[in-house]
């Protein structure tokens, strides 16, 4: 079918970054800006991946630690850590990552489905995998990462 072919050939752009020594990517349409790390105010009763809230030009945004969420543990303090500010719907959130690497442009057909891994939590928030020259990158579903918090808090 020509229409699906066209859809598969269509490019998708992702911002890739490292958290917990793993490569992740997020659809570029969600990414608003990349900022240096600044101090956060911890929140009471927050799950482990919510580091706290940060001041982004007068608005209060929550910061999620991707390494605590998907990786081996909380991100270690490092002045080189950066915050990827992302928006979804009317929500603005920050993702703490170790480094932002590149903007990846791939055809949608190159995005592989997440294999049947055991952790349902991970499977829900990683929508796909893109093969790269060196290894692979995990495509994250921002909404699922944020909703996970809502579920735990409820």
């Amino acid at each position: 079918m020509p229409s699906t072919d066209a859809a598969a050939r269509q490019d998708a752009e992702f911002v890739t970054f490292f958290a917990g020594a793993q490569s992740f990517s997020l659809d570029i349409s969600h990414v608003r800006e990349i900022r240096r790390w600044s101090t956060v105010t911890p929140l009471p009763h927050a799950p482990k991946e919510v580091l706290g809230v940060m001041n982004l030009r007068g608005s209060v945004i929550p910061i999620y630690d991707l390494s605590a969420r998907f990786g081996p543990g909380p991100t270690t303090d490092n002045p080189r850590n950066v915050v990827v500010v992302a928006t979804i719907g009317s929500q603005t959130v920050g993702l703490l990552v170790e480094a932002v690497s590149e903007i990846l442009s791939v055809a949608k057909s190159q995005i592989q489905e997440t294999p049947d891994i055991r952790s349902e939590n991970t499977r829900a928030s990683i929508t796909g995998i893109i093969q790269m020259e060196e290894g692979m990158t995990r495509v994250i579903d921002l909404e699922a990462v944020i909703q996970c918090k809502a579920k735990q808090a409820a």
């Binding site: 706290g52 809230v53 001041n55 929500q91």
Partner: peptide, 20 residues
């Protein structure tokens, strides 16, 4: 709007030094 309700906390504010 960006996070959700937290028990025991009603809202936030930005202090003079930019901290919340």
């Amino acid at each position: 709007s960006n996070y959700g309700a937290i028990p025991g906390v009603s809202a936030a504010t930005v202090l003079g030094d930019g901290q919340i």
